[in-house]
Design a protein around this nucleic acid. Structure first.
Lengths: 150, 150
DNA sequence: CCTGAAATCGAACCGGA
DNA sequence: TCCGGTTCGATTTCAGG
């Protein structure tokens, strides 16, 4: 699985700007053939470099409360808890961390009551959780996916 | 801007699974016409419900360190700091929060040194930052964009 | 719904290390 | 030969009336 070259990165940049742009459009802008863009994109997808998706505005589909929850877990339970929490549809992100919290998750809720209910019924000592810190998002300044800089 | 109905949500679900699937494919699976799917998708896009994008695997493009940084800012400086930090390409997410931290950001770095450098040179008292908590991601269990389902 | 324009896809082809 | 890029034609999708 070879490294990515300049052309691969250019293709990624175009798709990043607009996930719906076509191989042909990119090919024209880059001055190469459609087949080249298509073959490289297909290869990168197969290699797990990227995939096509959509980004949904959570507010528009009824989820207006976004929260981060930092978790202190019982010793040795992080993995188990991570596997368990990822099954909740509200939880869109969860990972284990080195730092103050053992696990950090990001979740969306329809309202504050739904958040409170989740916290009170799921993030309990019986489930291996020793403590949590809940932060509710007030204002989002940036949410990008461009690791591709400058 | 009317509400979304069952069909809209089904369309979103298909696009969520594969952002490259075609209107026709979805139409066939749902038993409606291609035009219907296209018209609804176009409307939803225009209404800001969703947009097409790609998700890049950061590790494959050279960013192996993912960190959350919680920030304590000087009183009244949150907004200014948020606006400023969002200009960094490494910072892929930043928002203000109610909770223990005033701001939470998510960033990718090529390695630990890059992270340390960023923290030491940017997140300083001179920039209005009183304190930070850095957490480095160990293992990611889930990173989805599906607020939908069920 | 229908039609022309455009994009896609697979496979074959080509040219230089 | 191998690897990458290109070309070509059949098929599918797209966009607008």
């Amino acid at each position: 699985m070879g490294k990515l070259d300049k052309l691969d990165f250019l293709i990624l940049e175009y798709f990043q700007q607009d996930g719906k742009c076509t191989y042909s459009q990119i090919a024209r802008k880059l001055g190469v053939s459609e087949g080249t863009v298509r073959k490289r994109a297909t290869k990168m997808r197969k290699d797990g470099v990227f995939d096509f998706m959509i980004r949904i505005n959570p507010v528009k589909v009824g989820y207006s409360v976004k929260a981060f929850i930092g978790i202190h877990s019982q010793l040795g339970k992080q993995h188990e808890i991570g596997q368990w929490l990822k099954t909740f549809p509200q939880v869109i992100y969860i990972a284990s961390y080195s730092g103050y919290h053992d696990l950090i998750l990001q979740a969306y809720f329809e309202n504050n009551e739904a958040l409170v209910h989740f916290v009170n019924t799921e993030l309990t000592p019986e489930n291996g959780i020793e403590g949590i810190d809940v932060s509710i998002q007030l204002k989002q300044y940036k949410d990008s996916i461009s690791y591709l800089l400058s």
